[in-house]
Amino acid sequence: MEPFLFVDFSRCIACQACWAACRREHGGVSRLHLLCFQEAAVPLACRQCRKAPCAGFCPEGALVQEEGRGVKFLEERCTHCGLCAAACPFGVLEIVPGPVPDLSRCDLCRRRWEEGLMPVCVLTCPTRALSLDAGGAVGRRRRAQPAAFPVS
């Protein structure tokens, strides 16, 4: 299964460690956003959609769905038109202004990934709210359910 950043909202304590880690790893711009609510917080980053609207909307084919590897960004084709950012239902794709505009989007720390390392947000999260193991996390949720309600 292609990995994606599984977020267990119920475990997040808004400690911002993921945000700080992401910001450090990616040169001062975090690709992950922590949205805080009254009694909950949600780390939000690229969902690695399997049929990604950003790739679907890109008129230049700069964002392409690579089988088994998610969406790939081909910088040389990008015209910075911003359609991808508009297409993303989650607002987690950003054109970073600068002399060479860049696309800021969580790539699950692909550079680390290639060295066999986990994304920094996953490693740093103290409560395991973030993981790449959706199957395991979903399984833990199932097991956390109270099994039998008492029937005497």
Partner: peptide, 17 residues
């Protein structure tokens, strides 16, 4: 679109990719 939001949202863990 395969965004996996439902996988994360289901409090019972009943949706898998």
């Amino acid at each position: 679109i395969g965004c996996h939001g439902c996988v994360m949202a289901c409090p019972f863990g009943m949706i898998q990719p």
